[in-house]
Design a binder for these strands. Structure first.
Lengths: 142, 142
DNA sequence: CCAATTTTGATTTTGATTTTCAATTTCAAT
DNA sequence: ATTGAAATTGAAAATCAAAATCAAAATTGG
């Protein structure tokens, strides 16, 4: 509930309307496993709400990003994926170029060094993406 | 010459043909300033070669990536950009979400920590991307 | 409940990238 | 140099995710 509530807050704050669709999309998205494309979320939601339009998914995902509840990613296959911003818990990705596996990791020291770099450049960081591409444990056999 | 020569080597190695177009595209691309989109490179090349087709630009950029001479980037505006891989000199990016400015930086410590992370996950890194999004010096006035 | 405003969803459109295909070019073997 | 098989080119058409349209429906403050 906490999360869906946050979207509600954002909508009210901006004078936008709280609709069933937005609530349902936020709910499903925030409770989901990570890295969903608009299309994937659409299919997921259609199980319970066959009348839901794909446009609304796109629109609501954009709202979730604006509200800071989702982050948008492009992993290079031409499809934009979204991932819930889990209560500030940031993480980065190892991406297997062979099997497509996505492994998450977290490293505090790297985060700190990033802040340092930003400061040295008089840059205010809002968000960052760190992605390591290569072969995962299974695919290491060239 | 050195760089265009390398594409030639790659083509021969793969049994592909060395064409005027490929030579010209590689030349112009590798000598260019950074972060070119296919369209931008197209316009650039058309000045001297009005007959060059856009498809060929796309195809050759793909070859350059395969040959390890270009790296492909998506900064979130829906346009794929390519950048010459300058003799192994790696760098990352600060991207201003307001004015679109792209500032390059380099940090050896971060690189090392990335290697560490990869090792801990039994992951072989081929390539990585680190992008910090936010406000540049000029755009810091919210 | 009402009216003003926003949102929805079906559909169309956009725009970057890819594919198709006939004509041309490359290149290894003559 | 010439040949011919195989690859490449450019123009046009196809793709496909994402954005825009717009009439009908839903939301919300009064």
């Amino acid at each position: 509930m906490g999360k869906a509530g946050t979207l509600r807050d954002y909508l009210r704050h901006r004078g936008l309307k709280v609709t069933h669709q937005r609530e349902e999309i936020a709910q499903t998205f925030l409770d989901s496993t990570r890295h969903l494309s608009a299309e994937e979320l659409y299919r997921l939601i259609q199980k319970g709400h066959p009348e839901m339009g794909l446009s609304t998914i796109y629109r609501t995902l954009k709202l979730l990003v604006e509200a800071g509840l989702a982050s948008q990613r492009e992993f290079g296959d031409g499809i934009t994926r979204y991932e819930p911003v889990a209560g500030g818990r940031h993480h980065d990705h190892l991406i297997c170029v062979n099997c497509g596996a996505i492994i998450e990791f977290q490293n505090q020291k790297i985060e700190e060094l990033q802040k340092e770099v930003a400061e040295n450049n008089n840059f205010t960081v809002l968000q960052h993406k760190l992605e390591l591409y290569g072969y995962c444990e299974k695919c290491r056999r060239h």
